[in-house]
Amino acid sequence: MNEQETPNTEPSRREFVIAAGTAAASTSVLGLAVLDAPAAEVQGGAAVRAVGPGGVQVAFTVNGQKVQVTVEPRVTLLDALRNYLDVTGCKRVCDRGTCGACTVMIDGKVIYACTMLAVEAQGKQIRTAESLIANEQLDRVPAAFVNADAQQCGFCTPGFVVAMKAVFEGNANPTPAQVEKGLQGNICRCGTYEQMRDAIYALCNQKRGK
């Protein structure tokens, strides 16, 4: 199924979401006005700027591209990426920092995007699963998933490949056990762990012993 192949004169759900986001941004002048107002909290020392509760502009880098987004302070990085910036590799599943489907790298370290506020990502370098393909060439980590058939429904896969990629970027020659430790924070409810182990052993250039 490919959304782009569908002839479409109606606005797609995604276009609608983007348009709605823009509308939210234009009403956020109220919120931005708060930013410019003198900070009320001045007690001993420099004032600390009050941000929000209306929309505030946040700028960060996603997969090498600088982006700006206007969001309320309560919007998580995950929702900013998916609903405002159309970066949908990271998935919203538990939304409580447990399942790992929303895993992204920030400055090279894996985090749960559902559990970080978008305003906290100001100025950061964010990488999602979308960064693991270049010129139609899959990175070796997701390629190993394909070769080992290490997915079923696939919803957790973007989180798993980002978490696994982070292990290999931090350690060029990890043991399979070290790679598995790097996946402690991800869950696959289809239970494709055995195929993932095959992918891990292939990436570590080791034979899986029985």
């Binding site: 708060v34 909290e41 007690q43 001993g44 020392g45 420099a46 600390v48 700027r49 009050a50 941000v51 929000g52 509760p53 505030v56 309320e72 302070p73 309560r74 506020l117 305003v119 906290e120």
Partner: peptide, 29 residues
């Protein structure tokens, strides 16, 4: 979640100056 006003101080003294004498309305992140 309920919306809130967000502060990002750069010193511990600033952070403390933003807190209140009761629990609940202001949380540390």
């Amino acid at each position: 979640m309920k919306n809130f006003t967000y502060y990002r101080p750069t010193t511990t003294e600033q952070a403390v100056s933003l807190l209140e004498g009761r629990w609940g309305n202001t949380e540390l992140l």
